[in-house]
Design a protein around this nucleic acid. Structure first.
Lengths: 167, 167
DNA sequence: GAGCGCTTGTTCGGGACCGAATATTTCGAC
DNA sequence: GTCGAAATATTCGGTCCCGAACAAGCGCTC
């Protein structure tokens, strides 16, 4: 007896518990499986790609954003990484202590702070990325090409729908 | 000038930045959109259903697990909620202080700790659930029934694939 | 029944995380 | 030019989060 349940058993338990109620199960399975998949993937990538790099998941995401967009303003990076400004401040403190990234002042607006990768940060991202993408491919290994595109499309619709209704 | 990018612009920037490299874009769009959608959904549910309840996302998930499965052992709840045992210890301390949930000893094994909702915790879940499910339906509003099922199916495949290769 | 692996939950240290409050800077109105 | 409103990053307090170290209990072997 391991105490560990499969996803199938979990879904059965939910169905049993909510049997009498008026529930939109299709919506529930879609949403709850997004959350489950996201946790499982993050966990997998932390244990494979990020293990031994000294980077946390969020630290990696922040560096990824700066890598992709080039030098950036902090509020842009926070939004893109999906974290609050105050969280970013703390993460930057960590990343700066590793010398992976540096702050510098905005040329004209003294309120703003700009970010860029250092040479070592740039090198780290270049070395991590192939392994990262290889693990992404591993994650969707059981899906065929059409399913992968369909998955991305459906998720894109959800994100855009929520983006359009926020604020 | 808002500093805010749409998902489309972000994907374009990534394509530009990685243009020359050998990248599995299908895998990348699928995986990165799972993460984005998950963040957006969690954020949305926190701002709607959980606002004014005093519950954090994780606190809600823990209570949800105990609600669905009935009285449970802590290691089971931690696994099902997707958090570590040590995190659960801290969250339980918070939830117990709210009197939403209580610990009690396992009948035969004195190492183990059991959990159950209090009457007020049970009442809270019953009152929150309809609104929660309504918001889940809102999240997938732009998808038709077939897309919702396909989305859940693909995500289930990913979770099961990662479950089967862990350890 | 003593010893020894194994399982279990907690503690500990350090980082991530958020909203609210704060300090600084910008910009428009006048 | 000066005042006030808006925008910006940081600080602060409290919670979440993890892995490693720990303490306690179980169960097997002998």
């Amino acid at each position: 007896m391991t105490g560990h349940h499969t996803l199938r058993q979990t879904e059965d338990a939910i169905g049993d518990r909510l049997g009498g109620l008026n529930v939109d199960f299709e919506a529930m399975w879609a949403v709850s499986n997004i959350y489950r998949a996201s946790s499982a993937i993050r966990n997998h990538l932390e244990q494979t790609v990020l293990r031994d790099t000294g980077l946390t998941w969020t630290g990696f995401v922040v560096m990824w954003v700066v890598w992709i967009w080039g030098e950036s303003e902090t509020r842009h990076v926070a939004a893109e990484a999906g974290i609050s400004k105050s969280t970013l401040t703390g993460v930057l403190k960590t990343l700066e202590s590793y010398r992976h990234l540096r702050r510098f002042p905005h040329p004209t607006d003294r309120r703003r702070v700009m970010l860029e990768l250092t040479a070592s940060g740039e090198r780290l991202m270049r070395s991590l990325f192939p392994d990262f993408n290889r693990q992404e491919a591993f994650v969707v290994k059981e899906l065929d090409s059409e399913q992968r595109r369909g998955l991305a499309d459906s998720l894109r619709k959800i994100v855009q729908h929520l983006e359009s209704t926020e604020r």
